[in-house]
């Protein structure tokens, strides 16, 4: 007997239902469509000579160039490649964020455990947080130099304030009932941190990491463009100075796609870690 599936629930099993589900629910499809539109407009602009191909090479040249193998630029010691530069920049962001997370976690724990430190530390962190990461670049170059440690320091300063404030807010926002019950169940101070406070602030921490990542990613690229001697930002500046506009475009696109991919990855980790959130 042929079964009849009435109403909305049956819609998705039909061919049109599947197609409409694919069209309206697939974020990836919309992502591809949006980029296809940009690429087509860009190509059309070049073809109609509205865009100067010397300044903005069309996608028909830029995309094959991006996939042409190991793209490099510069001479001698200054020579650098796309993959190498990307790895350097990612390494700096990762290291800076990790140190930032560790230091801000320590500060948040200290502030929670010792109320007197809250009065002392909080004003400092609140004053540091609004400073734009790029404002640290001149200071960093003078004090630390133009190498990797300087970039890591810029990332660290970019994330320290916001991450510390977010962690403190997450710790303050733990429902009182959890702490009362844990206390009542005879939980020791260490177990309270490890099994109650830490898991309770994972949602806030993950949001803080995601928000900080954008700041860190932009800060390190700005630093590399402003004077640090390696990384993705440095490669773009060198490409611009050597008038390799295809590489400039490839570099810019790489910044966008890598930033997007890492944000998606963090979202995925977030979803995995926070399956318990109601």
């Amino acid at each position: 007997m042929k079964s009849h599936t009435p109403g909305k629930s049956g819609h998705q099993f039909t061919l049109t239902g599947r197609i409409s589900q694919l069209i309206f629910k697939s974020n990836f499809l919309w992502f591809c469509l949006a980029w296809l539109l940009i690429i087509l407009s860009w190509e059309l602009g070049s073809w109609l000579e509205w865009l100067n191909p010397q300044i903005l090479p069309p996608p028909s040249e830029t995309i094959p160039y991006a996939f042409s193998g190991n793209i490099t630029i510069g001479f001698g010691q200054q020579r650098t490649g796309l993959f190498e530069s990307t790895a350097i920049t990612l390494g700096r962001v990762g290291t800076g964020m990790l140190i930032g997370l560790l230091v801000s976690s320590c500060l948040a724990i200290m502030v929670t455990e010792l109320p007197i430190l809250r009065r002392l530390i909080l004003p400092i962190v609140q004053s540091l947080a609004p400073i734009a990461p790029v404002a640290w670049i001149p200071f960093t170059i003078v004090v630390i130099g133009i190498g990797g440690p300087a970039a890591v320091f810029i990332v660290f300063m970019a994330v320290l304030g916001t991450m510390t404030l977010s962690l403190i807010a997450a710790l303050d926002g733990i429902p009182d009932e959890y702490l009362k019950i844990a206390h009542n169940l005879g939980t020791s101070r260490i177990r309270m941190w490890w099994y109650v406070r830490l898991p309770a602030i994972i949602p806030g921490t993950m949001t803080a990491i995601r928000m900080s990542f954008f700041g860190a990613w932009m800060a390190v690229l700005a630093g590399e463009m402003a004077g640090l001697n390696s990384g993705l930002g440095y490669m773009i500046i060198m490409a611009q100075q050597m008038y390799n506009m295809k590489l400039v475009m490839v570099g810019i696109l790489a910044i966008g796609f890598i930033g997007f991919a890492i944000d998606r990855l963090l979202l995925l980790i977030n979803a995995r870690l926070l399956q318990w959130v109601q």
Binding site: E177, Y178, I181, L185, S188, P199, Q278
Partner: peptide, 28 residues
């Protein structure tokens, strides 16, 4: 030797049911 029960937030949502029940035993 006192137990507290509230309207909500009694269980730790990141633990399973058995982990929640085992929690005070582990504390001991």
């Amino acid at each position: 030797s006192t137990a507290l029960i509230f309207q909500t937030h009694n269980l730790f949502p990141w633990m399973t049911a058995e982990e929640n029940v085992a929690f005070p035993l582990r504390n001991q």
